[in-house]
């Protein structure tokens, strides 16, 4: 029975004189290596040149603010529930009077932590979020010396009030169109 079309018959003929002389094969090999001398190199000179990420790349998360600068997250816990790696934990709290400019709705997350060592960057939290509060950006988590440093709290997750240029890809509409295009 033939399983694959790529099967090759093994030929066990003794070597001819030319094959035993090695030299033609050696010169053939040298021609192959010299061709590689002129090929385009795959190396990227990293700090100066950075690899271009896919438009739908999933990197470090960001907790978004609304157009008034208030945090969108209402600590509903759907992201934590959807997370297959169980990387997200949060503590909900009630908004006090006078904090309307900080939190959009009456409930907010006083603690919101993602363990980047557990996270598999699947993006299910982004899909689960009913408030469009969490998004995955195109930046990668930095290296750290301790495990604790990989648990990102709100200080590192909440979107800064001044939007850095680097995270431009994270903005919702652009991302969605790019995602649709890639599909």
């Amino acid at each position: 029975m033939q399983i694959t079309s790529r099967a090759k018959r093994v030929d066990k003929k003794p070597f001819t004189f030319l094959e035993r002389a090695y030299l033609p094969a050696i010169f053939g090999g040298m021609v192959i290596t010299i061709k590689h001398l002129f090929k385009k190199k795959v190396t990227i000179r990293y700090p100066e040149v950075q690899r271009e990420f896919s438009p739908v790349y999933r990197g470090v998360h960001m907790l978004k603010r609304d157009e008034n600068g208030a945090e969108r997250c209402t600590a509903c816990g759907l992201c934590a529930l959807s997370c297959p790696a169980e990387a997200i934990t949060m503590t909900a709290d009630e908004r006090k009077p006078g904090e309307e400019n900080l939190y959009r709705e009456e409930k907010y997350a006083s603690v919101y932590e993602i363990n980047m060592l557990r996270c598999i960057f699947c993006g299910l939290c982004e899909e689960a979020c009913p408030k469009e509060a969490i998004f995955l950006t195109d930046s990668i988590p930095t290296a750290n010396f301790t495990r604790d440093d990989f648990t990102y709290g709100k200080d590192r997750l909440v979107e800064p009030l001044v939007r850095p240029v680097k995270h431009i890809n994270a903005f919702e509409e652009e991302r969605r169109t790019a995602w649709n295009k890639a599909r």
Partner: peptide, 13 residues
């Protein structure tokens, strides 16, 4: 350098 070039790398730079 040559080892790099022949293996599609850049070598020390």
């Amino acid at each position: 350098k040559l080892a790099g070039f022949l293996q599609d790398r850049l070598g020390p730079d």
